[in-house]
Each structure stands twice: as structure tokens, then as C-alpha cells.
Design a protein around this nucleic acid. Structure first.
Length: 575
RNA sequence: GACUCGAUAGCUCAGCCGGUAGAGCAUAACACUUUUAAUGUUAGGGUCCUGGGUUCGAAUCCCAGUCGGGUCACCA
């Protein structure tokens, strides 16, 4: 027989459940059976099919028991499976046809708890109150739950009571959040749906899903601080990828016409409502296309995704109403700046730009080149205005080292970013495929780095070698999946669309094993003269009120003393 | 990184001017043998985040720390 260990440290309810577990075992019931439980329907399917008039004579469901209302010889309980909840009706004489009523009276009524996984077999009927329910003929315990779930109740008006709101609780124990807050599950199911809409769309276009290295010797393709790790056998540092762009382009060189990857990227930077150290970017590269084609492709993709998730192209994000109806407006960056600042910066040199920034009160640094200055200008004065999905096009060459020069506009590149609710959601180029030009751009980045720009890119010689073999004209695009998921599910923190957002580790208060000085002092006096009056002991110890209090409580919790109340007062004795 | 708010029973939260902690739900027992946030009665349940200080006395006031949230800055 199994021994249940160490009941100290457990809450009353946890102890009760462990005792129930032992009793179940004593009844010969395996609380964690191994056998397959042959479910043949989900809760929501039962409701749908029954509502459609289908007769359901033998359904088998499994899930967590989320509540139970025991009413003598019959009980109602709620079963929650992956699809939702359904009421089950359990009659004593139904599940216990013989004289032995143990299964109902003892097992169901006393030993099963909220949160336990159970399986039921029975038929579907409608109760007096009109609730579709399962009339249970067989009841099976599938897994015992030892920790009580938070109690969240919904009343007749649909008002939710005592929902678990505490962010820390929800993020650290997402499994509980998912069980108890139905909205959470919905958000994550939408997120998954988003991925499958993307995959379907790309696969329809014969674009190949691929995987590229996460551990990279040179972290390329973006400007960001990487995580560094170490490979023991090779005895060399490796970086966690900050982007997968350069690898996907190598595959285009290799002859694939289109590739995409949902890439976990890692950036060793600050964390806030829109930044988690690991996050997902979908990058896609398609040969023989340009950034105009990619805009068409992107707006259709996002419209499709929005409809798939929300059933409409019109959604709300916070106080904003956002329309994902394609096509989206396309605004050249310099036009955007002109529109929102009144200044036409086309053709300006670095000094003139710096003056414009100063005049507009935008703080600039000496290390900022022309591209960076324009970026600041746009970021400070324009970005926030683009609530509706808008393609901002044609960026300065200095801030786009991997992008092809614009076919007609001097000093610019063929690049767009998609802005929604003032945030960058997608970033795309006509990819630079001239290897000599690419080398020059990397060298410019090196000069920026020397000037103090810590975001400048490192040179990837192998990538240049690949380009020298020839890469077809290609358009590439990256979408921040987390931020897009936030918008399409109306969530305002990245933590709410990641199952397990990064958190500092929980610190458990250390379990005290040894007595501290105060406790030793008190125990020393007591052990010479036990039992003794509590107040005498306190006086003799000469401790301050707080020290005394801590000491005596510490001793009691260590099980070394016992306080008894008499008519005279409190007496302490050493145990 | 700066500022700010929070941490009390399994959960949601009260706790006043400093006097050793309360409610609802949950749990346990009993009743009722009935459906629906079932009901009634009773009971049990606490390292008041941690450490220090002030005080005769601290959940409460002060200081430091831990963890979390928000705002801003930085960063895409």
C-alpha cells in the first residue's frame, strides 16, 4: 500500500484530498488508472447534436469535474472537457445497481473533488429546467486532483464571480488559468488558428515551410543584442538567433522559389508589455517577386486571418476600431514625415536633418547617421498616427542594409513596414541580391558600429559567398506573430498571448531547520523549568515584544513547545 | 533604469486613529432527498511576502529587500 508522506506544509484542503486519495486506494480504486478511456464525443458536440434533435443513447465523455451538487439519491455535476462544460446527472441506483451503494455514497459523494478527472458513460436528456445533461450509467475516476482549483462561478445573469485576475498567478500557473478562465483558452486557440491560416495560405502558394538554425555562430539579419551560449564539444561561443533572414535567403540561393519559417527569436533586451526575451517572427521569402507584390500578398493574408479569427474584418483594439479590409493605404515615408511635420526632408543631408530634428524637439545623438535621424523623425512624429493598417514605404538606405536600392528614388530602398495601431507589425523588402553592393552595405554598418551605433550589423562572410553564387530577385517579409496575435485577440500585454511568459523564478521562503538565537534562548529557559507561565518566561527571556513573539511562534511551529490555556493564564511546556 | 501601486485563509477581497485577524465562495460534519453562482446550521482553516526598526504592543507606522502590475524612459 502506498504511504502518503509529509502532511505538514499542506493546507487543510490538500490534506483532505490526500486522505481521500488513500481511501480510494483502500476501496481498491486506482486513482491514476493506466487504461485508455474510449471517449466518443465532446461536451459541445453533445449540446449541438442534441439541440439538432439527434438522439444520443450512449455517449462517453471525460474531463474535469468542475462542480457537484449532491441532493440525496441524485446529484448533478459539471464536466469540463477540451470543448467546454456539460452537466451530468448521477443517480445513486443507476451507478450502483446492486445492494452495494459505496460507489455513490462514499466514492462520488465524499471522495471525488472539484478538479478530479472523471469519465462518464450514459445517455443524453434534458432536465426539468431545460439543461442538456448526461444521465450517467457508469462513472470512472480517471485522475485524482490533489490541489484545489480556484473557484470561479458564473451566476444566472452570466456575471463571473471571483475570477482569477492576479497576473502573477495566471502567468506562473497558466495551467490553472486555462482550466478556470475560459477566455484564456479562447485567446490561445485563436493564436493557433492564426498560425494555421498563415500556413494554409503559404502552402496554397507552394511556399515551403523550413527550419533553420537557432544556434548561430554569427547572429545576423537584425540589429539586436543576442543571448550568448557555449558549445562544449566545439569549445566555441554560439548565439541564439535574433533573426533567420540570412539563412532563408541562402535557401533561395539554393533554388527554392519560396520558403517560410515560424522562428523563435531571442533578444537580450528589456522586457515590457510588448517585449518578451523570446518571441516568434514569421519570415517568408519568395523568388522573382518585389515588395509591391509582397504588399498585395500581405494585406490579403491579414484580411483572411482577421476573418478566420473574428468572423469579420472590423475589430476593436482597446479604444481603437481597426479595419483589416484590404487593400491597405500605402504611404511613402517621406510623405508621411511631410504630412505630420510640414517639413519636406527629401534631398536633405545629415546636418540639415539634424537641424530639423532639433527644431522639432527630437533628441538626437552625434552617432546618428542620416538614416537613423529619419527613423527618429518618423518614430517620434508619425508612427503613432497610423491606427488603421498602413504600409509605410521607401525607407532611407542607411537604415536598411539588406534591402535593394529603390528602382527610381535616389537614396531610398524598396522596403515597407506595416503599421497598425501605431505599432510595426510587418517589415519587408525587395531583397538586396547584388553581392558587391551587399558587401559595401555591411562595411557601412561596420563604420556605423565604429561610430558608436551598437545596433549595426555584423558581417556574415558565408552569406556574402552565397550571394556571389547568385540569388534571384526576391521579396521577403517578416511578421511579429506575438504582436499580431495581440491585436487580433484584443490583448494588450505580450504575456497574455504567450502561454509561459518569461518570469523571475519564484522564491520559496526557506524552510527553517535550525533554531535561531532567540529561540534557543527561550527554549533554554523553558527546558530547565517546564511547564511555566507564559508571562514569566517572557520576562525571564528579557526579549523585546517582537523578538519574543517571533521566538515563541518559531518554537511552536517547530513543534518544540505547547501553549495551554488555563483559568490562571497561559502555560508553556516543552514537548 | 525611474516613478507608482500591490502582496492577508485554497480563491476573491475587507481590515478605520497601532490593541495577536474577518466575509463570501471553497473545505468538513449534519440536515433537507430537492437541481443549477442549489439551500440551512455548525465547525475547522492564517509565517498577514521577507528582514530590520519605532512602540508596552505592528497586518497596520518607518527603512531595506523579494516578487508582481501599471506609467515613463531605453529598445524594435
Amino acid at each position: 500500500m502506498r504511504k502518503i508522506l509529509s502532511m505538514q506544509e499542506l493546507s487543510e484542503q490538500e490534506i483532505v484530498r490526500r486522505e481521500a486519495l488513500q481511501k480510494l486506494i483502500d476501496f481498491g480504486i486506482d486513482p491514476y488508472p493506466a487504461a485508455e478511456f474510449p471517449v466518443n464525443i465532446l461536451a459541445n458536440e453533445v449540446k449541438e447534436k442534441f439541440a439538432a434533435g439527434e438522439e444520443l443513447k450512449e455517449v462517453v465523455l471525460a474531463g474535469r469535474m468542475m462542480s457537484s451538487r449532491v441532493m440525496g439519491k441524485a446529484s448533478f455535476a459539471e464536466l469540463q472537457d477540451a470543448s467546454g462544460r456539460i452537466q451530468v446527472y448521477i443517480a445513486r441506483d443507476e451507478i450502483c445497481p446492486s445492494e452495494d451503494k459505496t460507489l455513490y455514497n462514499e466514492v462520488f459523494k465524499k471522495l471525488l473533488d472539484r478538479g478530479d478527472f472523471i469519465g462518464v458513460k450514459g445517455y443524453v436528456f434534458k432536465t426539468q429546467v431545460g439543461e442538456t445533461s448526461i444521465h450517467v450509467e457508469e462513472l470512472t475516476l480517471l485522475a485524482k486532483s490533489l490541489k484545489p482549483l480556484p473557484v470561479v462561478k458564473t451566476d444566472a445573469e452570466g456575471v463571473v464571480h471571483d475570477a482569477v485576475h492576479d497576473a502573477e498567478f495566471r502567468y506562473r500557473q497558466r495551467y490553472v488559468d486555462l482550466v478556470v478562465n475560459p477566455g484564456t483558452k479562447e485567446v490561445f486557440m485563436k493564436r493557433t488558428k492564426l498560425y494555421s491560416v498563415f500556413r494554409d495560405y503559404f502552402n496554397e502558394h507552394d511556399i515551403l515551410e523550413v527550419e533553420t538554425p537557432i544556434l548561430q555562430a554569427i547572429p545576423g539579419g537584425a540589429a539586436a543584442r543576442p543571448f550568448i551560449t557555449h558549445h562544449n564539444a566545439l569549445d566555441m561561443p554560439l548565439y541564439m538567433r535574433i533573426a533567420n533572414e540570412l539563412y532563408l535567403k541562402r535557401l533561395i540561393v539554393g533554388g527554392f522559389d519560396g520558403v517560410y519559417e515560424f522562428a523563435k527569436d531571442f533578444r537580450n533586451e528589456g522586457m515590457d508589455r510588448t517585449h518578451n526575451p523570446e518571441f516568434t517572427v514569421m519570415e517568408i521569402y519568395v523568388a522573382y517577386k518585389d515588395y509591391n507584390w509582397m504588399m498585395d500578398f500581405t494585406e490579403k493574408l491579414l484580411e483572411k486571418a482577421c476573418i478566420a479569427l473574428n468572423g469579420t474584418t472590423e475589430i476593436e483594439y482597446g479604444q481603437h476600431k481597426v479595419s483589416f479590409k484590404a487593400p491597405f493605404p500605402r504611404v511613402p515615408m517621406l510623405d508621411a514625415i511631410k504630412q505630420h511635420t510640414g517639413v519636406d526632408i527629401s534631398g536633405m543631408d545629415e546636418d540639415a536633418l539634424r537641424k530639423v530634428c532639433n527644431d522639432l524637439g527630437i533628441p538626437v545623438e552625434e552617432s546618428m547617421g542620416k538614416g537613423k535621424l529619419i527613423d527618429e523623425l518618423f518614430g517620434e512624429k508619425c508612427e503613432g498616427h497610423y491606427i488603421q493598417p498602413t504600409f509605410i514605404t521607401d525607407y532611407p538606405v542607411e537604415m536598411s542594409p539588406l534591402t535593394k536600392k529603390h528602382r527610381s528614388k535616389e537614396g531610398l530602398v524598396e522596403r515597407f513596414e506595416l503599421m497598425i495601431c501605431g505599432k510595426e507589425i510587418a517589415n519587408a523588402y525587395s531583397e538586396l541580391n547584388d553581392p558587391i553592393e551587399q558587401r559595401v552595405r555591411f562595411e557601412e554598418q561596420m563604420r556605423l558600429a565604429d561610430k558608436g551605433d551598437d545596433e549595426a550589423m555584423m558581417i556574415d562572410q558565408d552569406f556574402l559567398r552565397a550571394l556571389e553564387y547568385g540569388m534571384p530577385p526576391t521579396s521577403g517579409m517578416g511578421i511579429g506573430m506575438d504582436r499580431l496575435a495581440m491585436m487580433l485577440t484584443n490583448q494588450h500585454s505580450i504575456q497574455d498571448i504567450l502561454f509561459f511568459p518569461q518570469m523571475r523564478p519564484e522564491k520559496k521562503a526557506e524552510k527553517k531547520v535550525e533554531l535561531n538565537e532567540t529561540e534557543k534562548l527561550i527554549f533554554g529557559i523553558l527546558s530547565k523549568n517546564s511547564p511555566m507561565d507564559l508571562n514569566d518566561l517572557k520576562t525571564q527571556s528579557g526579549l523585546s515584544g517582537k523578538q519574543w513573539d517571533k521566538g515563541i511562534k518559531g518554537l511552536a511551529s517547530a513543534g518544540l513547545t505547547k501553549v495551554t490555556k488555563t483559568d490562571v493564564g497561559l502555560t508553556v511546556e516543552a514537548v
